[in-house]
Design a protein around this nucleic acid. Sequence first.
DNA 1: CGTCTTATTGATTCAGATCAACGACGGTGG
DNA 2: CCACCGTCGTTGATCTGAATCAATAAGACG
Lengths: 234, 234
Amino acid sequence: MQQIQVACQNCALARLCLPVALGSEDLVKLDGLIKQPRAIDRNEHLFHMNDPFESLYIVRSGCIKTYTPSPSGEEQVTGFYLPGELFGLSGINSGKQPTAAQALERTNICELPFSKMDDVTQQIPALSQQIIKVMSDELMHDQELLGLLGKKSAEARIAAFLTNLAKRCSKRHLSATEITLNMSRSDIGNYLGLAEETVSRTFTRFVNEEILSVQRREVSILDPERLQKMTCSS
Amino acid sequence: MQQIQVACQNCALARLCLPVALGSEDLVKLDGLIKQPRAIDRNEHLFHMNDPFESLYIVRSGCIKTYTPSPSGEEQVTGFYLPGELFGLSGINSGKQPTAAQALERTNICELPFSKMDDVTQQIPALSQQIIKVMSDELMHDQELLGLLGKKSAEARIAAFLTNLAKRCSKRHLSATEITLNMSRSDIGNYLGLAEETVSRTFTRFVNEEILSVQRREVSILDPERLQKMTCSS
DNA sequence: CGTCTTATTGATTCAGATCAACGACGGTGG
DNA sequence: CCACCGTCGTTGATCTGAATCAATAAGACG
């Protein structure tokens, strides 16, 4: 399997990724730090829970889910990451991964070794600021999700999930109305604190109400406004 | 009302707070940045949602809750902050507060103006690293909470809430078994995605099972091990 | 073509929400 | 110092949304 060298400067995702705030000199330095993308097969793990924390990761293509296996066996899905999105931040302080990361399909990953970061934050102050910003976004995302799981109905959760996904898709110049779900109903349910059957039922209800059209994992959002409104119901 | 000048160097909370990783020179610089503590009365707001993001805040004494008012009127409590804890991180990137912050009792707050931070991260690289660490912890906390709200029973949620609180209390040299709740049952319920009545009922069930003894807002944890175990049930 | 995984649909059950009433403080003002 | 009022917490009765159990359908894939 050949490795295609792709410098951060030329990467199509640069506008979505860490380079977004860096000047061209800093970009060269960043290139020196980033490990070239490596491929991960569907269902393969990038890291497991409690693995030593070594790097930050960025999705280049495909999709990653993170989850925490609980002692009692089940798992809780904590996030889905799309191309250009950075993850693995929550292990920085404790030194070990508080989640596991698994590919939902064949996925390419860029790796930013964090051991070198101590030096780096001094070499590239703009980078440490950028990381702070990414973390801040991640915090906002979590808080949104918390609000959701805290007290919303199944309908509102699904609506918010799809709305959020649409937003992220459009950010990366994909259609905001024609979405492909990379994850199973069961993963969605787990993420949203719902049974997989409830996810299915809610989808069909939305189809009946002509808010969505759903075919397997292809979702068309027919009425984005109404979907948006359902987000904050109950 | 007099302002008592307390330098970070002499602050009793230094070991819990940002200074934890700073050398004495950096500490002096930090002191130059920190605004001296100001008092906030019970129920008063430190900031509202959508206020411009200007500072990071640290609780010196008292207790702060953060919440996001939803368009539909209700609110979702997203966190409680104890002395030594830093909050307000999630607004860094967007430039405005995604939550409101309200005092649960008379509370003293240290303020770290973030406008100066751009310069500061270069002056005190160790500080920006420390902030990254605090954010990482906050991310871990959120993920834990997500796991909780995702699929746990009311019992498990309350158990986890109390266990977490106990941990934080002991970290600040308060008893880990004799806890004073600064928040109402309703706040707890809101935070955990439960009705206030369910919180009450769960407390009394724990009392009957001799896991807790509860008097108003004074909670004694009689059987920490069992409480811990209930954390991951269902 | 058969097998395995994933999704849908139906029937039943149950945990927790909601509605409602009451009790216990704590603060305020007479 | 006590009586009143408002807030907060507890307890009971009922209802309901989503979980669970169970069966079937629809792809995906070798």
